[in-house]
Design a protein around this nucleic acid. Structure first.
Lengths: 214, 214
DNA sequence: GTCTATAGATTGATAGAC
DNA sequence: GTCTATCAATCTATAGAC
């Protein structure tokens, strides 16, 4: 099994990238020193500068790779079949699963999105957002076109609602676990099933649904 | 108008706190230097150490104050009257408004919640979360008890969904603004109105609502 | 490619005058 | 209470041997 030149040349590089990814996902840019990355990678600090010109470039490379990996993970959520309702269920489940499967990547990319004073690489982070958001909107629109979903709601708004529910679940899981009443903190599949059902059927009893409309 | 001793004694203190709050809300703990805080406050760096023993204590004081202010803001969302549906609409609108009114405080507290390697003051941040979450769950439960809302959904789940929708809106507003189709990015009231309507009525046309149940 | 050694800047925190 | 001056530690980045 001859390794590709890219692998040989990039082995040291990838050791560094892996170490940096792990550290940058837990702490912010300034809280991670090049020394700590070198220790984590098991090499010397100066060796990092052989592969990357400076700390910013290393961080950028980590974020670029994380963003790429995350997009690949999330794109699996799109290729579904069946009714639009089935696709929605599948999408919600896969999206949340992707977040939970690679929490380090998500935290890394999401932090870059939230940091206001550091537009170091917002571009990359926004790409993944755009992919998922657009795909979900398209699914909802097709559902409206086919008559499977009501036509009088804004698809982008519901897309925001669904993605927000998953991201918020991901972000708040550790806090939600404190509440005894919150059993779904450790049951992401059940959480998404409940979310989608509410979004489809609503909370109003069917008999009185008409009385709510203004 | 005789100023209170507390005000006289605490004036310099509060200048520092205000400066630190502004800087800590934009950048992470390690990215904000005591020098930068002193410049922002218009005093000398050494003077900060007259009021606070070290950087950690200053950060803690900022987060404690921010958490307290945020809880006060958010508690206004709870005292509502009318039907449960009205209370829900009011709650959603006030909650999002509170987030948007003090974006610095929200970012500051929320960052503390997300940082995994820095449990510097998670306690304070979680308090605000608990207040709002519990209040919303109670509203939903009362709605179920009165028969205004269907009884077969998990109130905590819907509370997560609603809070997540608002927090996600707050976090992603700048990105959502890039999309021409997303008109609600600059219309938080309209966003919440749409959110609540979907949650109440669902996305399924009434005529075919029964066919969806598994 | 990998290392040790170190330069040069900045950091959190202190000492002491006023 | 506020300041200037400064400390020791740590940081990014570089130099140069191997």
């Amino acid at each position: 099994m001859g390794e590709l030149p890219l692998t040989l040349e990039g082995e040291g590089r990838q050791r560094i990238l892996a170490a940096a990814e792990k550290l940058f996902s837990d702490k912010a840019f300034d809280a991670v020193s090049m020394n700590a990355i070198a220790l984590q990678a098991g090499i010397s600090k100066a060796n990092i500068y052989h592969y990357f010109p400076n700390k910013d470039a290393l961080y950028l490379a980590v974020l670029r790779a994380a963003s790429r990996n995350l997009r690949k993970l999330l794109n699996d959520a799109v290729d579904a079949h069946g009714t639009v309702v089935d696709v929605l269920r599948h999408f919600a489940r896969c999206h949340l699963q992707a977040l939970l499967d690679r929490p380090e990547l998500v935290r890394l990319v999401w932090r870059e999105l939230l940091e206001k004073g550091a537009p170091r690489a917002r571009e990359f982070a926004e790409q993944g957002f755009a992919d998922v958001f657009s795909a979900l909107v398209a699914v909802l629109e097709s559902g409206q076109a086919r008559g499977e979903l009501r036509a009088d709601f804004n698809p982008a708004l519901v897309a925001t609602l669904m993605l927000g529910a998953n991201v918020f679940f991901f972000q708040s899981r550790d806090i939600l676990r404190h509440y005894p009443a919150v059993a779904f903190a450790d049951d992401p599949a059940g959480y998404d099933a409940g979310i989608v059902e509410i979004l489809l059927r609503g909370m109003i009893p069917e008999s009185s649904a008409d009385t709510v409309r203004a």
